[in-house]
Design a protein around this nucleic acid. Structure first.
Lengths: 342, 342
DNA sequence: TTGTATGCGTTATCAT
DNA sequence: ATGATAACGCATACAA
């Protein structure tokens, strides 16, 4: 065989010029093709099983049909739900999604941005909390500048850190609302599995939570805010570390759900009853939560929608200034933090 | 701005010809470039922030640097783990991954194959059980023929159905081994949440399970094999349907883990104790399982490895006949099916 | 309405 | 070793 069928072959076979074939198949802007000719071309293309080469079209048009998606870990339900939203929105827009999973390795991020720059992707959606690491952020900013110079647009999910369009999740407010809700249920002795010190999302949730507690007159003991990884295992280890000190605590807030799930597992291993001995709450409301026991209290973020919104934002006509779409969380109280009888 | 920097600009700025610039940057096969010139070119490229256009390279080389991944639902932990493996293997091979999530809609599959055909992807990895639906499979086969004619290769995860390279999961044997293990623990009265009748993976697991029980002299009552969706909600509904008849059952095998998780939830809603009243087992050993209560017995499939293997298979030099890599499952018994005192 | 010719950014062939 | 130049497959400005 002689490789893929080309438009020239279709044109020759249909007895028309390259240009006519192109117009018949793609319905050029103002140009139009006589009905009988178009039909002949279309029939020929169908018969020959012709599929336009997207790379060639991209060259000729100066525009590709793909967008990039960068996540920390596609196997994490938080990211895979957002990815589902991105995939959905991209399909609607007729675009293909190039997936990059960094495995929590910061150095991979700018590398993937470069890959997408070379592909001349129309847009990049970057999902996942950024660190307060000026060096890494500068590198990222710099690679995004390159990407935008190549004609692409960018949308960030999380903090509005990199001077680009972003879907901003109300981390601080959500955590504050959760704190008030827990306080309302009678909890008074709080601890926090706080994630990495420099993790901005974690930090916002910590400070929002602590701030609300302060206002409620039940400030949190800084010693009870433990640092740990932003992962399920981080939550597990953090919980172990926390209870190694036999703290005086009646509820633990993990700054995300996978950490909370790890904390529940740790509690089980430590023979600490949840919620009997201590309540636990998380953040995000990942789908897998509904099958966790006890049902976990959390702050619900509409993850799939976030993915859709971020994609639409990235694809919208470019604006002068960075746009921000704010997403609120909803406190959802479940079995893991029942009404507390004091 | 004048859009992305081109190789011509770099060449001009460096005072060399286009050809030399190209060779300096990409290190052509046998050609070589004088050191000082190469350095000058490279420095110029760096200074101008030049990034080769992958689409143009694809055209000139007749080969792209991307592969496609088709899954039913990227938010399902089964698929997202395999996707992580594909992503990993692709990065190693220096390839980008185009993700397609069909949302369990069969008609989307051939459409995505076509998208990947247009992109001239090097390979497609198709993950997820196929149905015994001749029409849909023919459509799929046909679109895969188009894809391969365009130069791409294909790897399937699941059954060796479409005459292409495949990673074959030992569904029947795994289910049989599980049946024997459960029998060994004293279970005698079996039921199965069987998934869709035409779902081939589900079917293999059902028949493997039933076959082993037959051999053990404790054949299963066909009325206790209930049909349901291959999803978490399918397992939930299937469990409800099963127990609506107050069946005489001491253990339920769900043909995959997400269904088993749904079944546990249904049991909880029905106030049926697991494993007190009935044991439950699944299949796959998805990561999210470790935080399910009670810990679920299952057949462990190394999902990330499967993704890696499928990718390597698709990328290997083409063979005359379809290759098959067989993957065995490992029975893992946990709390959900304790030793049964008869 | 149709066809011809040019350009997109890169690699590869052929001279030099 | 380097440099013109012809592909690659398609879209489009321009000519007819």
């Amino acid at each position: 065989m002689a490789g893929p069928v080309t438009l020239s072959q279709v044109a020759r076979e249909a007895g028309v010029s390259l240009a006519t074939a192109s117009r018949a198949i793609n319905g050029s802007a103002n140009r139009t093709v006589r009905d009988d000719l178009r039909e002949r071309v279309l029939a020929t293309a169908e018969r020959l099983r012709y599929f336009p080469d997207a790379n060639a079209q991209a060259m000729a048009r100066g525009q590709t049909t793909s967008i990039g998606l960068i996540v920390h870990d596609i196997a994490d339900p938080y990211f895979s739900s957002i990815a589902a939203g991105v995939s959905l929105a991209a399909e609607r827009a007729g675009l293909a999604v190039t997936l990059a999973s960094t495995q929590h390795t910061a150095s991979r991020e700018p590398r993937f941005v470069e890959v997408l720059t070379r592909q001349r992707a129309r847009a990049i959606i970057i999902v996942g909390g950024r660190l307060d690491d000026p060096e890494a952020n500068d590198r990222m900013r710099s690679s995004l500048v390159d990407f935008r110079r190549s004609g692409g647009s960018v949308a960030l999910v999380g903090q509005p850190l990199l001077d680009v369009d972003s879907v901003v999740i109300a981390n601080s407010q959500g955590a504050a609302a959760l704190a008030r809700a827990l306080h309302g249920r009678g909890y008074r002795r709080f601890a926090v599995l706080g994630g990495p010190a420099k993790h901005l999302t974690a930090r916002d949730r910590r400070t929002g939570f602590a701030g609300a507690l302060e206002e409620l007159g039940t400030p949190i003991d800084p010693a009870l805010v433990v640092e740990c990884d932003f992962t399920r295992d981080g939550g597990y280890e953090g919980m172990r570390a926390l209870f190694a000190g036999s703290p005086d605590v009646d509820v633990v807030f993990a700054v995300n759900d996978v950490m909370a799930v790890g904390a529940i597992a740790a509690a089980r291993a430590l023979r600490i009853s949840v919620p009997g001995d201590v309540g636990i709450a998380g953040f995000d409301d990942i789908v897998t939560l509904r099958d966790i026991t006890p049902a976990l209290s959390t702050v619900r973020i509409p993850l799939v929608d976030v993915g859709v919104t971020a994609t639409e934002l990235a694809l919208a006509p470019p604006a002068a200034d960075p746009r921000q779409v704010h997403v609120e969380g909803t406190v959802v109280l479940r079995e893991s933090t029942p009404e507390r009888v004091v």
